[in-house]
């Protein structure tokens, strides 16, 4: 709940990946992820190739591997799920270290871990090199309805404020000697959520009036990057990632000599 939460994934920098137009990066990451997800799980080498590609992008973007590794923790709940699969899935059993495991389950677990991890890494690289509001601008360029972009933008802008309110409530609770220790204490924490909603709602009303008094008529004034389409060169650079991934995938299809 610390300040700067919304920017925590963004690593300020002026590298070649940072300066690419956000819309190019967004499309590239999406296309890359689609290629990864569409790759048959038996093509083990292809997944290694994808990882090498992402690490190469990280190196060019000067995103340290340690940063990526720490943020991969977000995947842990699904790793637990994947680990359970070999024990439950149908199909023929194989013996691994004395355990009877389902071969199908092992493949399934590998499929989830490999594709999930590559997807998170690709998203992390996008988030680490692109400011959040520019990602939203890229969505606008791609044709997402303005109202949704506005909602997302206002959410990002006020999230810090709302989270800081929550933190002040926590400090107020703790300075009165309260600490949540068991489920019965959830009621007190939940009442904070109720109070937080009232504060957020009333802030929304004030924000709306402030916007009106500054001439808001239902559309936000365009940002510098809104509607940016990107030139041919940035597109070529950005799309080299999914293109390389596609090449790796196709190489996996070719018969082994």
């Amino acid at each position: 709940m610390s300040a700067g939460f919304a920017d925590r994934l963004y690593l300020p920098g002026g590298g070649p990946v940072h300066t690419l137009p956000p819309v190019c990066k967004l499309v590239a990451v999406l296309a890359f992820t689609v290629v990864v997800v569409a790759t048959p799980r038996e093509h083990l080498a292809a997944f290694g190739g994808y990882l090498v590609l992402l690490l190469a992008v990280a190196a060019v973007a000067r995103v340290p591997p340690g940063f990526l590794a720490r943020r991969l923790l977000i995947e842990v709940p699904f790793l637990a799920f994947a680990l359970a699969l070999p024990f439950f899935a149908h199909g023929e059993r194989v013996d691994v270290l004395g355990l009877s495991l389902s071969a199908e389950g092992l493949w399934g677990a590998w499929n989830i871990v490999a594709k999930g991890t590559l997807g998170v890494l690709a998203s992390l690289l996008l988030a680490a090199t692109t400011r959040p509001h520019l990602i939203l601008g890229a969505l606008r360029s791609l044709g997402m309805p303005g109202i949704l972009v506005q909602i997302a933008g206002l959410m990002l802008r006020y999230f810090e404020v709302i989270a800081a309110e929550l933190d002040r409530m926590r400090i107020a609770r703790e300075s009165r000697g309260f600490q949540a220790r068991h489920l019965g204490h959830a009621r007190v924490v939940a009442q904070s959520a109720g109070a937080l909603f009232i504060r957020a709602y009333e802030r929304g009303e004030r924000v709306h009036l402030a916007m009106l008094s500054r001439g808001y008529t239902g559309a936000m004034p365009p940002l510098g990057t809104d509607g940016e389409r990107g030139g041919a060169v940035p597109w070529l650079i950005a799309l080299s990632l999914p293109a390389a991934a596609l090449a790796v995938a196709v190489a996996g299809w070719l018969p082994v000599r």
């Binding site: 506005q150 909602i151 709302i162 909603f197 957020a200 709602y201 936000m220």
Partner: peptide, 8 residues
């Protein structure tokens, strides 16, 4: 926009 944004 502002209300849904703040609720989000």
């Amino acid at each position: 926009a502002p209300m849904a944004g703040l609720v989000a």
